[in-house]
Nucleic acid binder design. Structure first.
Lengths: 205, 205
DNA sequence: GCCTAGTTACACAGGTCTGTGTACCTATTT
DNA sequence: AAATAGGTACACAGACCTGTGTAACTAGGC
């Protein structure tokens, strides 16, 4: 056997592979043997980097927890861009729903899994809320929750149906909710995704 | 051991118990031994009624597939009643998300599971669509999809957060969407929710 | 040249899971 | 009374799972 060079950090390779398999096939459905075999390493090496499968699961979920990046786009563009991004991801073959929701569904009782899942959902809701506050929306809290419902609803529907149109439906609904809250959604925001940034500051109507 | 009389059909008892355990703990997390032990029967008896665990899983999902019952209430009441019903179920201790979404998340590759999940989601969407058509909504198809997103979004959020307020948030969003489509939502529909006398049996979400 | 850290190959313990085989038991029916 | 249907008890095969133990190998740093 030729010895593999192991250029990138082994730990990263393990985590990356575990991430892919856990996400695509389910956490319980993938054993550590499978992960090791996929990389071509021995199971012993895997356990030298992660003390248990539970630790690997935690690392997997922590890795999936990425905070939304700050952007210089307008708040409306950022909000609607979320749904465009979803549509793109739904169209990819390897989309399999929200890893946090799936993990809770699979490992229901586990406290730590639930904790990180709640933190993730809340972080996205707060991101929506802050953008809405920038737009001067009075009920930013409530509307942010509703937008989060649309996001998770479209993810769940796409998981089952495999239909990227669910993202567009959510986007259309989001536009209705935004307008109802007094947010001006320009024609550019409705169709195009990369147009000039028009700053629209609103006061309460 | 005193011999148990087995009054109700054994098959029903097995299915009912499997349903409860599968739903609450996850399909992969529950073994046939556990199910048999919970009822107090031998594993052999279980396998005399269901040829395999897969057959039991199929029966479990088929049992959860309950079509919405026809109602004499107004379409608006029926639509909003869906969210009231969700709120009630979220408040119950034994709510653990949508069994079909959970099953797809757990058993992703399985074709038949996916098929029944799609059928269930579509049946509820069509139920919404027909109610909207009765209300003369022009874009009943699109709006029905959006309402379905709100339903599944609130279910996913509650699964993670355990917060029945997700159902109310979905309800408020639904009202905005309905009004935007020209539907008149009366004050009674907006507030009152204990006008219903009929007990609705469990439907699957 | 030598040491050390990381890796490999492989066996194995101990657990769980699905599914079967078999002999016995207990009602109900005929 | 006898036959039949359905249940029980229990062992077990075969697969898979997590996690460990161990001896040998390989590469880079000193």
């Amino acid at each position: 056997m030729a010895t593999l060079p192991a250029k990138p950090d082994m730990k990263d390779r393990i985590l990356e592979t575990a991430d892919r398999l856990f996400y695509l096939q389910g956490i319980r459905a993938v054993g550590v043997d499978t992960i090791a075999a996929e990389i071509g390493i021995s199971k012993r090496t895997l356990y030298n980097h992660f003390p248990s499968k539970d630790a690997l699961i935690s690392a997997y979920l922590a890795r999936r927890f990425v905070a939304p990046r700050p952007s210089d786009k307008s708040p409306v563009e950022q909000i609607l861009g979320t749904f465009d991004s979803l549509e793109r991801r739904f169209s990819a073959k390897d989309f399999r729903g929200c890893p946090f929701v799936n993990a809770v569904a699979e490992l229901g009782e586990d406290r730590s899994v639930r904790k990180v899942a709640v933190a993730f959902k809340e972080s996205r809701r707060l991101w929506f809320r802050d953008l809405l506050a920038q737009l001067g929306v009075a009920e930013a809290e409530a509307l942010a929750t509703q937008l989060a419902l649309l996001v998770d609803g479209s993810i769940a529907q796409d998981l089952v149906r495999n239909d990227p149109a669910m993202a567009r439906a959510a986007r259309e609904a989001a536009i209705v909710l935004l307008k109802n809250a007094g947010v001006k959604v320009g024609a550019a925001d409705r169709q195009n995704k990369h147009t000039a940034k028009k700053r629209r500051s609103r006061s309460a109507s």
